[in-house]
Amino acid sequence: MPPDPGLIKLDTASGRETISGGEADSAQRFTSEVKYVSYFAQKLADTLGMRQLTLGIVEDREGQTAFRASSSGWHGAVSSNRRSLWQVRETLQRG
């Protein structure tokens, strides 16, 4: 099994965002991915009569970006390996 990719945290406090963990490229990709998905996810949640996105896994030909809502923002990882949805969920729950 490939090693878990580095955990990245996107925290928001008093309107200020701080990103920590991961390499610079991964952190930048993580941030833009979370912002893009969470923008549309909020619209989708409203349509579905739900409150908010709690976990997202975005997969393209180059890999996966996964993120989970935390008390201070989002945490997750960018990976070039394709892992099962179950495996990604498990990893994020531990993180």
Partner: peptide, 28 residues
């Protein structure tokens, strides 16, 4: 909404495979 979201990826030429969006009351 999903169409708009997917179009956004298409505009930047990202070859998306799947999106897994877990909400508090269900998953897309």
């Amino acid at each position: 909404t999903i169409s708009q979201m997917v179009d956004g990826y298409r505009q930047v030429r990202r070859k998306m495979r799947q999106l897994y969006l877990e909400f508090d009351g269900g998953t897309l």
